[in-house]
Every structure is written in C-alpha cells, then in structure tokens.
Design a protein around this nucleic acid. Structure first.
Length: 474
DNA sequence: TACATTTGACCCCCC
DNA sequence: TGGGGGGTCAAATGT
C-alpha cells in the first residue's frame, strides 16, 4: 500500500520536491515492487512520464486512449498500479492521468461519467483488445446499416471508441466525454473527432433563454464544410440536446489508425468538440452530417436528444426508427442499427433541407415536454415487433415493446425498455409532430447497471459537459 | 507561435 | 416596425 501511495503522489504531483522523500525509490522500482506481474519496462516508461516535471498535454498522447477522460486524483492514484498488464480491468482509464498531471478541466458530469466508465480500459495495452473488439463491432454495425461501408470505413471507427457513457455527451455522449476536447486526449489533435466522428470547432457559446446552461456552437472543421451543431445541456449539466445543421460535404475524418500496437485511435474525443458532445458515437455512427435529430442518453435518466436539421436521417438512434431510411441527404444509411427498417420507412418522410434553426428548437422543446407528459400517463401501447427488436443505442440495450400513435402527433411513438435485468428504464421515441425531421426521445428512470458494452460507452465531450463557466474567466 | 476556446458585441430573424 | 432572442463574429485569452 505504501508503494501505491508513493506512486500516487508522484503521479499527481510531478514536482521537483517529490524526491525529498527519503523513502522513495525510483519510480520504476516502486512500480516493479507494486506490480510484480507487470512488465518492468512498461512501468519504467510510465514512471518517467509521470515524473516529468513539465506538463504533458494529452494531445500528444494519442496512444493512451482514455487518457483525457480521467482526471480525478483517485483515478490518478491508480495509474501507477494499474499499468500492470494483468490488471487491466482495474486500471481503466486512469492511466491517462499520467499524461495529465495537472488538474484539467473536468466537469462533475465528466467525473460521474468516468465513474460509470469504471470498466473502461485505459491503458492502451488493455484497451487494445477492447478497442479492436469495438472496431470489429463497429464494422459489423456498419455492415448492418450501411451499404457504403467500404468507402466509409473510417467513419464508425471512432465512434465506438468514443462511445463511452457520456453524458451524455453524451456526449453527451457522450459521449460521453464529448465535451472537453482538452480533457479528451485521444485523437484530440487538430482533429478532434467527436462521438459523431467529425471534427468540430467551437465558435460560440451563449446563454439561452430558459436554460441554465449555455448553448455551445460548433462548426465542422473540415474545409468548406457548412455543418454546424449546437449543444445544449440540461439542468444537471448533461448534454440534453445536440442539433446538427447542414450536411457534411465530406466523409468522416479518418480516425487515427491504430497501428499494430493498437495505441492509436483509442482516444475518443467527445464531441464536443467534443464534447459534444456528447452523443455517443455508437449512436451517431451514421450521423453523417445531415440533419436529423438524435438523442443521446449520456446520463441515464437524462432526456437528451439529438436533432438533425436537414435531410439527413438519423442513423444513430435506432429508436427513431424512421430516421434511417430517410431519403434525404445521406444515402448511405440503409437500416438502422436496430434493423427496424420497416419502421423507419413508416416514419420516414421526405425531409426538406430547409434549416429551421431557431424556431425549430423551441418547437421541439415544447414537443418534448408534451411527450414527457404523455409518457407518464402510460398510454395504451400497441405491441409490435416486441420480440425482434433488441437494439443497442446510447450504449444500452433496448427492446422495443410497443408502438403507438399518440394524440397530437401523426407519427407513431415507439416504446423501448432496457433489456437489462432489474433495470426499469424505459424510453420512447417519436418524431416531432411539427417537424418530422426531429426525433424526440424521452427517457424514464435511471439505469441501475453499467453499459453492457464498454466499448460503446458514450463519451461526452468535455467542453459541453463542463459546467457553465462564469464570465469571470477572463 | 499557432491554434483552440471564451465571450462580449453585433446582426438577423421572427413575433 | 420595434423588441427580443438566437446565431455568428472576432478580439482576447488560454494552452
């Protein structure tokens, strides 16, 4: 334990003063002692990094995937110990800290998210397996809902990795870690892929009326790409809604390629630029920049939603089944993850490209509120396809147990419940009555379990997740 | 030094 | 037509 303590100190405070402790041994030694099983070499390297007096920024550390995610001292403390290859599960994303000795901006939300992500593997060694798994999974998903897989292979790759429970991300998704690009180390260089697979630059933030939290505005960093998105947070600081505007005129940025060592590409930057946001990649794999609305449940119990304004279908959230087939902008979205193509066809309608920014938002909000109210009433549900629909969205598995046309909305509302035992979380998804392009998902309850698939944890972009900053910053 | 983020101010749209 | 609010710009600031 002592050793552990020592290691903690070193990592957390890579200051020159540290060596004063007479009892200190070299970091590598300590590590070696603490971790018998782990390869000494690795430890040594880690130690060096930790001790390095100067602050090492996350960006460079692309290889250490979850690095940015963890910043809490506790996590940090675990880093040294965790490097042992055998203790992957325990180490999780903590190792990240090593690269970020300094306290970085991590919102409470992020912290909680991270906590939820406890299982998320952090060290690249550990990650590698899971990452690959994720990638494979991703590819599979793609195949499931994409016809143009070949051309777009890169698009989904980042998604899963990123996808960690964000928000919410959320970034939510969030991812979740979508929000603070800075905190989200991986892949966060010039290109900061968010959970939706694209790179965003924040160009504005504004306090919106009626919202306690600021709305963040992002632009796709791809040259000449007109796509923008705005991320809103709910009262609890979680990403509540992400609205995309415009269509990407390019494919998703090539995700960092993982070399044989599997070090690269581990990082997932939440949209937020993350942060954004936070919508989990998995949820947005198909989010090819189009407009539509998706939602991400970064935080359990959170009612977050993702909206696309424009032609684009909403690929990522299977719930809005209709989205997938939307003929609009992105032709490549064949069927949703859930494979509910049929439903999609029902719900799908030709969508205009006309951006409806401002008004749309307020309208959607009102719709959402209305929806929530109805949901509470437990409307009679007509069960359809109850057996065949088990989908994974936002990192959780959902089973569709009903669909119903509710009053005031010509579009059917689909009801889903979490497939996890003992979990009573439910959600329903429907198109906004006044805007078929918008999907509103309402969650009820909180998950009492972790995400079934770690690799898909949404990571919210740090930026979006951050608590509203006071203007005194300057 | 370069780049990203922050944030006050301005512009535009809708009611 | 004016006011309010959302969206964007761009200088300042941070990393």
């Amino acid at each position: 334990m002592d050793i552990k303590e020592v290691g903690r100190i070193v990592i957390a405070k890579p200051v020159a003063s540290r060596p004063t402790c007479s009892s200190f041994r070299s970091f590598s030694e300590l590590l070696a002692g603490a971790i018998d099983a782990s390869p000494t070499n690795v430890c040594a390297e880690t130690a060096v990094a930790a001790i390095r007096p100067k602050t090492v920024r996350f960006k460079p550390m692309v290889n250490h995937a979850p690095a940015g995610l963890v910043s809490s001292p506790a996590e940090i403390s675990g880093t040294a110990v965790c490097n042992s290859s055998d203790k992957v599960s325990k180490c999780d994303s903590k190792s990240t800290v090593i690269y970020k000795p300094l306290a970085k901006l991590v919102s409470k939300t992020t912290v909680s998210l991270l906590a939820n992500m406890g299982n998320f593997n952090t060290s690249h060694q550990q990650l590698q397996p899971s990452v690959e798994a994720s990638v494979q999974h991703t590819n599979q998903d793609k195949q499931n809902f994409r016809s143009q897989i070949t051309s777009n292979l890169h698009q989904n790759i980042p998604s899963h990795v990123e996808s960690n429970q964000t928000v919410g991300p959320s970034k939510t998704a969030s991812q979740n870690l979508e929000e603070d690009p800075k905190a989200l180390p991986i892949i966060a260089n010039a290109d900061r892929p968010s959970y939706d697979g694209y790179n965003w630059r924040k160009y504005g933030q504004k306090q919106v009326k009626g919202s306690e939290y600021p709305r963040s505005y992002y632009k796709c960093t791809h040259p000449n790409c007109p796509v923008k998105k705005k991320v809103e947070r709910s009262l609890d600081g979680q990403i509540a809604e992400i609205v995309y505007k415009g269509e990407h005129n390019h494919s998703k940025p090539q995700p960092p390629k993982r070399n044989s060592s599997g070090t690269q590409g581990l990082g997932i930057v939440s949209d937020g630029p993350g942060q954004d946001a936070n919508i989990p990649l998995w949820a947005s794999h198909n989010n090819e920049g189009n407009e539509g609305r998706v939602e991400n449940q970064n935080e359990v119990g959170l009612s977050a939603r993702l909206t696309y304004q424009g032609n684009a279908p909403l690929p990522y959230d299977p719930a809005p089944t209709g989205v997938v087939n939307a003929g609009g902008g992105t032709p490549d979205h064949s069927c949703g993850i859930s494979g509910e193509c049929e439903e999609g066809s029902k719900a799908t309608e030709p969508e205009d490209d006309e951006p409806r920014s401002k008004r749309r938002k307020s309208e959607n909000q009102s719709n959402e509120a209305g929806i929530s109210g109805e949901g509470a009433q437990e409307p009679r549900i007509v069960v359809q396809n109850s057996a065949d629909t088990e989908i994974m969205v936002d990192g959780f598995r959902w089973r569709k147990y009903g669909q119903k046309v509710v009053k005031g909305n010509p579009y059917p509302r689909s009801y889903y419940r979490c497939t996890s035992l003992k979990c009573n979380v439910r959600k329903h998804v429907e198109r906004a009555s006044d805007d078929p392009r918008a999907f509103v998902t309402t969650y009820e309850g909180k998950h009492n379990h972790e995400m079934p698939v770690r690799s898909t944890n949404p990571v919210a972009s740090e930026t979006d997740l951050q608590a509203p900053k006071s203007k005194d910053k300057r």
